[in-house]
Design a protein around this nucleic acid. Structure first.
Length: 977
RNA sequence: GGGCGCGUAGCUCAGCGGUAGAGCACUGCCUUCACACGGCAGGGGCCACAGGUUCAAACCCUGUCGCGCCCACCA
């Protein structure tokens, strides 16, 4: 217990407290006998740095974690980082290019490059986790994970192999979204469509029989070189005479059929569509629908989107843009370019590379997402997992119901290498297939295995060899190395491992269980826990895996005893106790990328138990004007700059207060400043208390004084309101509630009203009681504010008393256990109202603040008389009025009507009669208007018949009160003369 | 082309069936012994528009007009 400094300087103590919490183990789950509460962090990119989106996401999580920790639950915030395949590889490659050597990953070779990425991760990988600490995030750092640590790698491989063995993961040759910059496949989700002002070119293809031409229209002339057919709508009479004929593809001189397909719209373009099966998703579907037409798949491009050797010689090696220009020019030269029209259309771009995506025919690994989606959909439909706000469920359903196969292989080096080994296959192992790089490798023989040894064992069986005769080569290329082939051409079979890695989201999808030690042998299966949970019914969160794990000693149910007893540290304990997570907090923008995939994998690998009970989706953080923050726009705000300037608590409070469901956050620095002021306010209030001999840590005494009984009741009401807000994930309400209580109740009224009780010469017993109650209330404030402002509250907690434990593990107030006194509350509310009325009247009539006025009362009932007597001192000090002996004066007075009485405040000299008349008239009219409205309601037959009885009673009472008030105001006006 | 969301005080947003609210900004007064990062008081709103349901609508329904986002194969 030390003196509180005069100035509030958060930088003085924030980092000190964080270090203390972390080293003391406060972030670790330490209550094995309590119900667990688990949040799994959305893992930030390992090499990233904190932006406001992270700040929001993690503040909300920390509020939840700290609140539930205070509630006595065994809180655990599982933390770690993501290797972020394409993003990280991109950064390192750029650094290599910019470095003094100016090298590329290709020049370095795979192993050296991957080593470099690991080195870079070692250097910059701790940045974001340190930044999360600055924010105050109470993560369980002792068990920090990484998506490429040993355990996680094991999980990823296990999932891949199992899905493959179950037929849910397969290799397929089809069109993918190909990024020519990174030379890798990407998923549908990584493509963003931009509308561009393009052109629609109309070309003519001569008919084989010389009877004329058929016109086609296209936005992509360069793909003409790969056309395998022309299609028209079957019901288009204008086109009927073409059907069944063939035309000659100019420039290539290939005969191609004219076919019908309903996909063609008769009234668009020329009414005929060129079919380029290997370069257009629609055309590929046409190809599959028309095997009889024998449409060829011609791969026109190299992986970098230059034109391939499948093109006529003049085109080979050209960029796609150059090839387009040349095709147009060549058609024009032949007189076959009909026209060009401007045409707005959508063009796919890679979300990371920013280049135009090419539909490209390759072999890739796919996950049967439609199958995995079924239980994931059911989990949300049944309410096992709930989205908050609920509106996002529709988005989830819509996407999951129309889900496409998920391409999970990436032609990158940074990531989880695909656990598949190819053997040699007579069909595929030709010089030709090697050169094109686009062979039908899906027809190869391959072995999917957990380990290389297992792959060799499978190969040995397949080739009828001994395992020693199976040699794994480092790469595909080595197979063609003559010296290697010479090793033992007779007896040896070669395998080489798939060169590709997995989509980052493939591993992210396992985050909720792989972080908890999955796969674990001999573990408790959560399936049982899930079944129990389902039976318990919604709303009963009393039975959890945690309670079961300690052997049913809480007597929640007889079946508990049947469950295996696991202790902390046992294999499988973490998984059984912390899966599924209670809440996932994340941005709505990654529902598809991540949430949906976690739901699918969680359902599949955790025996049908969804990974979370609640998915809380928040909005995006935008700048003060509502623009999306981006580095290129230069409108980003560094959260740490705000932390330095205003303190982490102020930033946290701002983000919490502004988080209302279903809306993006427009962050204005003024708000942060305002909440810093709030922190200062509390700081000063605590300093004031301390200087008055008030300390924390004491028990709540039996209070006799009304103002003390009142504040106790206010604490209870606040705690209750906070509980309600948190249960509904209303972060804004939570912040507002504690803000209003601290500032507008505790500081503005309670501390002011109790000043005389603590003053020299005051009654000793009352002073002691008041000190105890104030100390108790201030302690409750610190606890209730702690989830949002952890640093400030912990600092004050220790400054205000010597404590048995830190605030972070204190006990949240139980609203129901706090005594409340309705009469005392009504008394103080009455006093506050009267003081406010008097101040308002004085102000409007321009009575100097310092002037003390006498006052007389008419019409006061017993209750009012008693209250006036009891609060004589407060009225004198706060309203600056003192009771006046004798009959009220008739002239020169200010009158106000409050409750059942009319108060007159005589003024020396002349008062501004006009101003007073205006004031009273305004009040009278307001009361009359309201009385009239209430009267109208009471007079309408529908209201009396249909409204709730309470509503009717309240309307009657209000009407009576307001009518009386209006009457007395009119009387006061009349007396004014 | 579908779907979702939003239009409430100058600004940012709560409220979502029973007398229009908060923070900031603004105005006046106050350096009163916790706090000027403060205190007290105040001004300011046909709750986008038009219909409808209801005893009662900012709130529910329909439509219109603006703004934003997501999904979708018109070459």
């Amino acid at each position: 217990m030390t003196l509180i400094d005069k100035t509030f300087a958060p930088a003085d103590f924030e980092q000190r407290w964080y270090a203390h919490w972390e080293t003391s183990g406060a972030f670790r789950p330490a209550r094995p006998d309590a119900k667990p509460y688990t949040i799994i962090i959305p893992p930030p990119n390992v090499t990233g740095s904190l932006h406001l989106g992270h700040a929001l996401d993690n503040t909300l999580q920390d509020v939840l974690i700290r609140y539930h920790r205070l509630k006595g639950l065994d809180a655990r915030w599982v933390v770690g980082t993501d290797h972020a395949g394409i993003a990280t590889q991109m950064v390192v490659e750029r650094q290599l290019a910019e470095s003094s050597q100016g090298t590329t990953r290709q020049a370095m070779g795979r192993d050296a490059f991957v080593d470099t990425v690991w080195e870079w991760k070692a250097v910059s990988g701790g940045q974001i986790t340190q930044q999360l600490r600055r924010l105050g995030a109470s993560c369980d750092w002792a068990n920090e994970r990484f998506t490429m640590d040993d355990g996680f790698n094991k999980a990823v491989t296990r999932v891949f192999v199992q899905l493959y063995n179950e037929g849910l993961l397969y290799r397929d040759k089809r069109l993918v979204n190909w990024d020519p910059k990174f030379k890798t496949a990407i998923s549908d989700l990584e493509v963003e469509y931009r509308e561009i002002d393009g052109h629609l070119w109309h070309f003519r293809y001569p008919l084989e029989d010389g009877s004329g031409f058929i016109a086609i229209a296209t936005t992509r002339p360069e793909t003409i070189l790969g056309d395998g057919a022309v299609a028209v709508n079957p019901d288009d009479p204008k086109m009927a005479h073409y059907v069944g004929k063939r035309c000659r593809l100019p420039l290539v001189d290939r005969l191609i059929p004219i076919i019908t397909d309903p996909y063609v719209e008769a009234d668009f373009g020329s009414g005929a569509v060129k079919i380029t099966a290997a370069h257009d998703f629609n055309d590929f579907e046409v190809y599959k629908r028309h095997p009889e037409a024998a449409i060829p798949l011609i791969n026109l491009m190299n992986p970098d989107a230059t034109m391939s050797d499948a093109c006529p010689p003049d085109y080979r090696g050209l960029t796609r843009e150059a090839a387009r220009a040349k095709v147009i020019a060549d058609f024009d030269a032949l007189g076959l370019l009909d026209k060009v029209e401007p045409h707005k259309h959508q063009v796919p771009y890679g979300d990371r590379s920013g280049v135009v995506i090419e539909p490209y025919l390759t072999d890739q690994w796919y996950v049967n997402a439609a199958e995995l989606a079924k239980p994931a959909l059911a989990a949300v439909r049944s309410g096992e997992t709930q989205f908050v706000p609920k509106t996002w469920e529709k988005t989830y359903f819509n996407w999951m119901e129309n889900i496409q196969p998920w391409c999970v292989s990436r032609q990158l080096w940074w990531g989880h290498r695909i656990p598949a080994w190819y053997g040699r296959d007579p069909k595929a192992w030709t010089e030709e297939s090697r050169i094109s790089g686009t062979s039908s490798r899906h027809e190869d023989t391959y072995f999917v295995a957990l380990t290389e040894f297992d792959a060799r064992r499978q190969a040995a069986r397949a080739y009828a060899k001994s395992i020693d005769q199976i040699v794994v080569l480092d790469s595909y290329d080595m197979v063609w190395d003559r010296s290697l082939r010479g090793i033992d051409p007779e007896g040896t079979e070669f395998l080489f491992r798939d060169e590709d890695v997995l989509d980052t989201w493939f591993s992210s999808a396992l985050w909720p269980f792989a972080t908890l030690g999955w796969p674990v042998e001999n573990a408790v299966t959560p399936a049982k826990a899930g079944a129990h949970r389902a039976n318990d019914g919604a709303g009963d969160d009393g039975v959890e895996m945690g309670s079961r794990l300690r052997g049913g000693d809480d007597n929640k149910g007889a079946n508990d005893a049947a469950e295996p007893i696991l202790k902390p540290g046992d294999p499988g304990y973490d998984l059984a106790r912390h899966y599924p997570g209670d809440v996932l907090v994340t941005g709505f923008d990654i529902i598809f990328f991540w949430v949906a995939r976690m739901m699918m994998q969680g359902e599949h690998f955790m025996d049908g138990v969804a990974p979370f009970k609640t998915v809380y989706c928040h909005g995006l953080v935008r700048d003060a004007k509502g623009a999306k923050m981006s580095k290129s726009k230069g409108n980003t705000v560094d959260p740490l700059v705000l932390v330095d300037k205003y303190g982490a608590d102020a930033l946290r409070f701002t983000l919490t207060a502004m988080e209302s469901q279903g809306r993006d956050i427009k962050l204005d620095e003024k708000r942060v400043e305002g909440y810093r002021n709030f922190a200062t306010k509390l700081w000063n209030a605590a300093r004031f208390c301390q200087s008055n001999g008030i300390a924390g840590g004491g028990a709540l005494p039996e209070a006799t004084h009304a103002v003390n009984r009142w504040i106790i009741g206010e604490v209870a009401a606040t705690a209750r309101a906070l509980d309600t807000a948190m249960a509904a994930f209303r972060f804004d309400t939570f912040a507002d509630t504690i803000y209003q209580f601290v500032w507008n109740r505790f500081c503005d009224w309670y501390l002011e009203l109790t000043k005389p009780l603590l003053a020299e010469g005051a009654d000793a017993a009352t002073a002691a009681e008041t000190r105890a109650v104030t100390g108790w209330a201030l302690d409750r404030i610190l606890v209730m504010l702690h989830p949002v402002m952890p640093f400030l509250t912990e600092e004050l907690w220790h400054k205000l008393g010597s404590r048995e434990h830190d605030l972070i593990v204190a006990e949240w107030p139980d609203a129901d256990a706090i005594p409340t006194d309705a009469a005392a509350s009504a008394d103080i509310d009455w006093l506050i109202g009267l003081v406010t009325e008097v101040r308002s009247a004085r102000n409007e009539i321009n009575v100097p603040v310092g002037t003390k006025l006498g006052f007389s009362v008419e019409g006061a009932g017993d209750l009012t008389d008693r209250r006036l007597a009891a609060n004589r001192e407060a009225l004198e000090r706060l309203a600056r009025i003192v009771p006046m002996a004798g009959a009220p004066l008739d002239r020169g007075r200010v009158q106000l009507v409050y409750g059942d009485a009319t108060y007159s405040l005589p003024l020396e000299g002349v008062i501004d009669l006009a101003a007073e008349r205006t004031r009273l008239t305004k009040s009278a009219e307001a009361a009359e208007k309201e009385a009239a409205s209430l009267a109208g309601r009471l007079a309408s037959p529908g209201f009396v018949e249909k409204a709730k009885p309470e509503a009717i009673d309240k309307a009657r009472a209000d009407h009576a009160a307001r009518s009386a008030e209006a009457e007395r105001l009119r009387a006061a006006l009349a007396r004014l003369g």
